[in-house]
Design a protein around this nucleic acid. Structure first.
Lengths: 227, 227
DNA sequence: TGACAAATTAACCCTTAAGTACAAAAAAGG
DNA sequence: CCTTTTTTGTACTTAAGGGTTAATTTGTCA
């Protein structure tokens, strides 16, 4: 094309190390950012490749195609959140303190995992099609439910919790505001201003939400933060 | 290209009516479905055109480009939700009943506006860029806040509500679970099953959530649904 | 009644971006 | 050394899809 005759072998990178795992991780890290930022169809493989320290060719070598890469990213962020949940130990606390701790930890975990939040949003746009395909997912959310179940059981046994407190429902509830707090920040701020998202207000909000759940679950709980 | 010689004028639709408003509405309705289903980058103009009773060219004629169409869709669904909020009148109810009514109506409104939910999710993925560009948005969420403010004011004046109850925070809270209930249904179901989404369970959930908010706001409220 | 703007039709163009082909060479391990 | 795996590099193909050009009809108003 350029010249006609066979051109001499181009100068190649003459030295490098074999490190498949590092290359994979590098691709995954960049891809996580790009998919979280732009969604599945919005993300661009060429752009992801450009930002990695490797090439587009390697992305296909390791992940097959765009969807394969997306699935790997999705599993990665779920695993990340799970690890942060596993670190939490409330078995030694009395039920009331344990519940509060679980609520606040969940709130914080969501606030500190914006990539997770965005990818779950994106996955919901796709009706969880890729999540359902994944074989590792069902077990990923096990631990938080187990912890809540244990706390509820103990709380009821000691006559501290209301009979209506259900672990799955509680998890749904705690997730709802923890998730929404991050997921809808942009539109909420656009409509109502950013006052709720100052550091101070977020801390106060967390207290109030915890108090509210406690008041619903714990018999005779006094929600100081609402007075 | 095909043949070489100038081909005779193709047969055109020889008769049609001028009806700009109907064409616009037809495009908007289909585009709302497509954007809600696939997102901004995921939606396909050709597919939208195919499903309308008009042509792709008309989409560009009326909306300029893909983003223009998306913005029109976004404003449409916000306006739709606003209308449903405006229909709600709680001025005649006592503060306690009024608050409960507002909570349940918001929960129902979200459950019945899946397109709105999905488009807000999509807009959050885009950091509310298009919402912020819109000039009609700031006023769109006014009415629900006004209603909550009025109820809070009356509740406190009558000594029924706690001093800490804040209208904006309450709106955030009520929105959070009402929104999450729809937005994250797919991933939540994939992880934990669909039990929370049966008709019966949804009704019970609504009661419990309302009770929980009431217990946080109304002094001495007894949350029967948690017992 | 004929000019003229608005509305509509039909066919097309061109960029973007996913994915492939091809070719080769260094690394690592036995 | 010989083989397999990993990496490099570039050019290419191809389909999808956003956007355009241009002609034609409708309706309105001098």
């Amino acid at each position: 094309m350029d010249g006609g005759a066979e051109r001499p072998a181009k100068a190649r990178k003459t030295s490098w190390k074999k490190d498949p795992e590092a290359v994979r991780q590098n691709i995954l890290a960049i891809a996580t950012e790009e998919f979280a930022a732009h969604g599945l169809s919005g993300a661009n493989i060429n752009e992801i490749a450009r930002r990695t320290s490797t090439s587009k060719r390697m992305i296909y070598y390791y992940f097959g195609d765009k969807e394969g890469l997306y699935c790997a990213v999705l599993e990665g962020v779920y695993a990340f959140l799970r690890r942060s949940e596993d670190l939490l130990d409330v078995a030694g606390l009395d039920p009331v303190k344990a519940l509060r701790r679980l609520i606040e930890a969940t709130f914080d975990a969501h606030a500190n995992a914006p990539h997770f939040i965005r990818l779950v949003m994106i996955e919901n746009i796709h009706n969880a099609d890729y999540l359902r395909k994944s074989d590792i997912v069902p077990n990923l959310n096990r631990s938080i439910i187990d912890k809540l179940s244990d706390v509820c059981r103990r709380g009821k046994a000691e006559g501290l919790f209301r009979a209506g407190a259900d672990p799955l429902e509680l998890h749904w509830l705690i997730s709802s505001f923890s998730f929404y707090n991050v997921s809808n920040r942009a539109t909420f701020s656009a409509s109502f201003g950013t006052s709720l998202y100052s550091k101070a207000h977020q801390a106060a909000l967390k207290e109030r939400l915890a108090d509210m759940v406690m008041a619903a679950v714990v018999i005779g709980h006094d929600p100081k933060s609402w007075s």
